[in-house]
């Protein structure tokens, strides 16, 4: 995936409905349910028996940067809109994942040596999306300083979400540093709250996708 370097007023790219996005190439990432045996404990594995999860089958991803900030736009179909915790429902959610140093394992959410950085959006935390670092399943930890921003639109049966951040944000141990002219990897996860999806119960792009930021 090629992340173009654009100049000018970036305000329009903060809006997931903005017409400016129409010009930006879309990549479709197929998503699959996270494997049951990758779940962190017996309770969760047993609770998934005979049940379907990973409801979201694909997500459209767009991205660009202006030399200072990077903007990602996600779009996916989810017929049920879940904006908050209600009764037995969970809020819908999405996240971008980046390796922080070299070959991080995607399925295990990184490792102690090779952490991953997640940019996590949910409709109920839109004003304050979470910058997370994980060093293995069940280790997600919020890190700051955190200049991550998000904006979403619910359009029919779709979510359209923009996640934006300075190319580098705070200390290198607290998040991925993106540099124009360099390559890194990205992955996506989507949670369907109406299907009880949260934590490791989700749909994810099974392999890292290479991204290159135009210099």
């Amino acid at each position: 995936m090629y992340v173009r370097h654009v100049q000018g007023d970036m305000e329009a790219f903060r809006d997931p409905q903005g017409s400016a996005w129409a010009e930006v190439p879309r990549e479709v990432l197929d998503l699959v349910p996270t494997p049951s045996d990758a779940q962190p404990n017996r309770h969760i594995r047993n609770s998934l028996a005979g049940r379907e999860w990973g409801a979201c089958k694909s997500v459209q991803l767009q991205a660009l940067h202006d030399g200072e900030r990077v903007y990602f736009r996600l779009e996916w179909t989810d017929a049920t809109c879940n904006e908050r915790h209600e009764e037995d429902l969970f809020p819908d959610a999405a996240a971008l994942l980046f390796p922080m140093n070299g070959e991080a394992a995607l399925e295990t959410m990184g490792s102690s040596e090779h952490p991953v950085n997640a940019w996590f959006w949910r409709p109920d935390i839109e004003a304050c999306p979470e910058n997370l670092v994980a060093r293995g399943v069940g280790t997600v930890e919020r890190k700051g300083p955190d200049e991550l921003e998000s904006k979403s639109v619910r359009d029919g049966a779709s979510w359209k979400v923009v996640l934006a951040r300075p190319l580098t944000d705070g200390q290198p141990q607290n998040g991925v540093a993106l540099k124009p002219g360099q390559k890194t990897s990205i992955a996506v996860a989507v949670w369907d709250g109406s299907a009880g999806e949260r934590a490791g119960i989700k749909a994810f792009s099974q392999t890292w996708r290479e991204i290159e930021l135009e210099s």
Partner: peptide, 9 residues
Amino acid sequence: EPKPGKAPT
């Protein structure tokens, strides 16, 4: 073995 359960609402 852990038995699946419902979270009360």
